[in-house]
Design a protein around this nucleic acid. Structure first.
Lengths: 159, 159
DNA sequence: ATTTGACCTCAACCTAAGTTGAGGTATCAG
DNA sequence: CTGATACCTCAACTTAGGTTGAGGTCAAAT
């Protein structure tokens, strides 16, 4: 159980970085992106509340699931603004990711099975192969790097 | 069955682009990266052999599985150099991806289960939560964008 | 009083997987 | 023979998720 002091204490970036295992530059970056927030002391230095540590934990957990920061940010923005989010609030977010993961796994499973049947028929042809063709939709996305695994909002690779 | 002409015919970039559904700039890019190759005619224009079409099919199929181009290139470089690769050669590559996919799905499954138990215990803490901590290893990879799903060579997110 | 270390901002750089555009050449149809 | 395409190269731009460094300030220990 954290002491009364611990609960109300505010952390500097360096301290938050040490506790979270993230770099100071990453914390600055997350703040610019609106994923975390801070107040400033008299000398313009950041002070973070204890709640930010939990936000960072959620961010890291979500990233390890392959979810992009923009989506993580959207999820975080649904947390209550006035009161400090409680366990139930966080559970709602985590449950949302569960659905994303299930969808993503289903996609991988279908791709794997199609690949297997492609080995069987030896096709790998542009006319026939289900695995080769779906990329048509991906190639319509415009410039820049592609997302490896389109998340919640994927348009369906195979259907 | 393709005609004798078709078999020996060489394609220009534009034709290859049309047949494969890829853009001309992407084909140039793949050639620079060594994924495909061409000869040049008298006027310095690219001529592609029929085999390149199959390579492109493999590249697109692999990409739809979330495999990065560098790994696809490594796989392609294991194809026989002297003779034209046959069905069996391609099947070896496809079988390799199957293993990658199985590993990737196992990873997602473990993450999903851990997330579920994290909802149960309501922790999301840096000290205890299996889902939050593994990112330590990811953060050691240096500058630049992270891969969403580390492929064959992943160091193990959770173990 | 000074030095060390932590902090501040801002701009530039990195990878991946391409796209876009400028400036110049080739090829083909009429 | 002359346009209209198609092609060539090369450089710069794109997104994501940050890192690195320059130049300057703040805080605490000596």
């Amino acid at each position: 159980m954290p002491s009364r002091e611990e609960l109300f204490r505010e952390w500097s970036v360096g301290q938050l970085a040490e506790r979270s295992g993230l770099s100071v530059s990453a914390l600055h970056f997350y703040e610019r992106k609106g994923l975390i927030s801070s107040t400033r002391n008299e000398g313009n230095q950041r002070r973070f509340s204890r709640e930010m540590l939990r936000r960072l934990a959620f961010i890291r957990a979500s990233q390890s699931l392959g979810i992009p920061l923009t989506e993580i940010g959207e999820a975080l923005s649904t947390l209550p603004q006035q009161r400090t989010p409680n366990e139930a609030d966080w559970a709602v977010l985590a449950e949302g990711w569960r659905e994303v993961l299930d969808a993503r796994m289903g996609l991988l499973e279908r791709l794997r099975d199609d690949l297997t049947s492609c080995i069987g028929c030896g096709c790998l042809s542009f006319e026939r192969c289900k695995i080769v063709n779906p990329a048509d939709r991906l190639s319509v996305e415009g410039p820049g790097a592609r997302r490896l695994m389109p998340g919640t909002t994927h348009q369906g690779l195979i259907d």
